[in-house]
């Protein structure tokens, strides 16, 4: 028995599937449900800290908001291209599926790069985690407002970097995920090069090296175990993840950026 080839029964042997859809999609929805609780807990922690701190600072200016709005635009556009990728795959148009996926990744990468530039700028101006100081041997910040916020309200920087960092991590995972779907094994060397480039990245983005390396390992394992090409289900399921990450940003942007902005100056 042990060596016999197993033929698993087809769908007709089972009760009709719930939600009239395939298992992978249900699995992804369930993951997103739990992930929304993970983010929910972080947002709860942020709100709890903020409400229990009288005089929470609002140091962001129009400039930050402008930058964050452009980032938001990138992310929204990437959702649009993702929808187009799903449409193309349901038409059976594999060339355009891949093109739209690559476009989605490009807009996602644009978001991460802009975000990275924003982080580095804020860190340079004095908005920091206490850890950054010891890790990177930083100069004192150039913007007295951020310096004061960091000194008097360490939780301001703490929550800002924790929330946006967690979101950035999710976008990065999304890009790695879409790359594995769109490019299969071709993605592995590209990811490797990107990881090595990260080694020389300034500030905290040096640590992106480890994130990408870890992603590379996971991709390699998955592609080894499942060497076949993607189906339109894979596209749809990765799309669910991508839209979810966009949706999370729609909570983080107002809660972290807009609510910490002083409009008057």
């Amino acid at each position: 028995m042990a060596d016999a080839v197993v033929v698993h029964p087809g769908a007709e042997a089972y009760e009709p599937s719930w939600f009239r859809t395939y298992s992978k999609k249900i699995g992804m929805w369930l993951f997103l449900l739990s992930d929304s609780l993970t983010f929910g807990a972080l947002l709860f922690a942020y709100s709890y800290n903020r409400l229990s701190t009288p005089g929470w600072p609002t140091p962001f200016h129009v400039e930050s908001i402008r930058n964050a709005s452009i980032m938001t635009g990138f992310l929204l556009t990437s959702s649009l291209t993702m929808v187009l990728a799903v449409l193309a795959s349901s038409r059976g148009d594999r060339a355009w599926t891949r093109n739209w996926l690559l476009a989605t990744m490009a807009f996602g990468a644009g978001f991460v790069l802009l975000h990275a530039a924003e982080w580095n700028k804020l860190i340079g101006e004095g908005l920091r985690w206490p850890l950054f100081q010891t890790l990177f041997d930083l100069q004192p910040g150039t913007n007295p407002e951020y310096v004061a916020a960091t000194r008097n309200f360490p939780q301001f920087g703490g929550t800002f970097f924790a929330l946006t960092g967690m979101h950035m991590l999710h976008v990065t995972i999304g890009i790695i995920y879409l790359g594995a779907v769109a490019l299969r094994k071709m993605w592995l060397p590209i990811l490797g090069v990107l990881a090595i480039l990260c080694w020389w990245a300034p500030g905290p983005f040096h640590y992106g090296f480890y994130v990408l390396l870890f992603g590379l390992a996971i991709c390699a394992i998955v592609l080894l175990l499942k060497p076949m090409d993607y189906t339109d289900h894979d596209i749809e399921v990765s799309g669910l993840y991508w839209h979810f990450v966009d949706l999370v940003w729609m909570f983080i942007f107002p809660l972290v950026y807009l609510m910490s902005t002083r409009i008057s100056s």
Binding site: H8, P9, G10, A11, E12, Y14, S17, R20, T21, Y22, S23, K24, T231, H233
Partner: peptide, 8 residues
């Protein structure tokens, strides 16, 4: 719906 079979 049909694809459940592909899945299994």
């Amino acid at each position: 719906v049909v694809d459940s079979s592909v899945q299994h």
